[in-house]
Amino acid sequence: MRPDDWHLTEDVDGFLARAGEFLRSRPALHTVPLTVTEALRTRGADAYGAETPLFGSLERAGAVRAAFFRTPPRRLYLTPLTPEEASTLAARLAGLGHRLPGVSADHDTAAAFAEAWQRHTGATPTLHEQERLYRLGTLTPPQPLPEGRGRVAGEQDRDQLMLWHREFVADIGGSPAADNSSWADTRIADGRLTFWETPEGTPVSMAGMTPMVAGQIRVAPVYTPTHLRGRGYAGAATAEVSRAAMAVGAAEILLFADLDNPTSNGLYQRIGYRPVTDFAVYDFSCAAPEIR
């Protein structure tokens, strides 16, 4: 296998023409590339506040075997690769002068690529986060439910959603966008964010969902302000948005949980989510200069 066996493009439509069938063949495992490419296809790079994205696919005997995408300045995202495939991709990207801030993939692929990237560039990989992907089995709403009810967020909630999204991004160690209004506007327009609110009508938690692509919907984000945690609000909001995903006909309903957070992992399993596989996120330092 050679590094130039990877086909690279900046055209999302061209990428999906090549790799779309491959991504749809395993919708749970490929949930992130499916939802990200769909957003880029329908809304352009502004969907992620990104610079020009980069996509790649690896073909053998006329069939796509693996794929990746990157929406700068974010990390590289990979579908499962063998160590050899990870090495050839690292060699290809390093040879083109790309600088990567990190990688996200299933656990074994992320580790293999991190090692290969260090070998090809001298960059030092650091494990940033480990996540578990869950798939909904039988939805079992938490009992007892906290007082209150679920409600789909509307235009009147725009400022609240923007604030909570900034807090959520900060909570997970991300970099808040200067303007996250488009994030809120898109989800309000599509009815994809659900509040759990008190009997008095005060929102206390939110849960969102991605658009349905290839029959799968991913629950994200789930957020409760720090001072309101531990009262069952997140479980109630997650159950409500999961029910909404079922109502629109999703064949698979998925979510990620940080493995360092036993509370959220236990919560999701209690309401019916079952483990699929584990993912890892690495950060890279001292990478080679990027060609722009």
Rank of each mutant, 00 (worst) to 15 (best):
M1A: 15
H7A: 14
T9A: 10
A17M: 11
A19W: 12
G20D: 06
G20A: 02
E21R: 05
L23W: 12
R24H: 10
R24G: 14
L29V: 14
L34K: 00
T37I: 10
E38M: 06
A39G: 08
L40C: 08
R43M: 12
D46K: 07
S57W: 12
L58F: 04
E59P: 12
R60T: 05
A63D: 08
A66Q: 07
A66S: 12
A67Q: 15
R70K: 12
P72G: 09
P72M: 11
R74Q: 15
Y77P: 03
L78W: 02
L78I: 08
P80I: 00
P83T: 11
P83Q: 06
S87K: 15
T88A: 03
A91Y: 03
G95H: 14
L96M: 13
R99C: 14
R99G: 15
R99K: 02
A105I: 00
H107F: 01
D108F: 08
F113K: 13
F113C: 11
R119N: 06
H120L: 00
T121I: 00
G122C: 00
G122P: 06
P125I: 01
T126K: 02
L127G: 07
R132Q: 15
Y134I: 05
R135S: 04
L136P: 00
L136E: 00
T138K: 15
P146R: 07
E147M: 05
A153N: 13
D157Q: 05
R158M: 09
Q160V: 14
M162E: 11
W164A: 10
E167M: 04
D171Q: 02
S175M: 05
N180R: 14
S182I: 07
W183C: 03
G191K: 04
G191Q: 05
L193R: 00
T194E: 01
F195M: 03
F195D: 10
E197Q: 12
E200R: 15
E200V: 00
G201K: 01
G201W: 04
T202G: 03
T202N: 02
V204A: 06
M209A: 10
T210L: 02
A214E: 11
Q216R: 10
Y223E: 08
Y223M: 01
P225T: 11
H227I: 11
H227A: 14
H227F: 06
A234T: 10
G235Q: 03
A239F: 02
E240M: 12
A244K: 15
V248F: 09
A250I: 08
A250T: 14
A251L: 11
E252F: 11
L254N: 04
F256I: 04
A257I: 07
A257Q: 05
N261P: 08
N265M: 08
G266T: 08
L267F: 06
L267Y: 12
R270N: 13
I271G: 09
G272H: 13
P275V: 05
F279H: 07
A280S: 15
V281P: 07
R292S: 04
R292D: 11
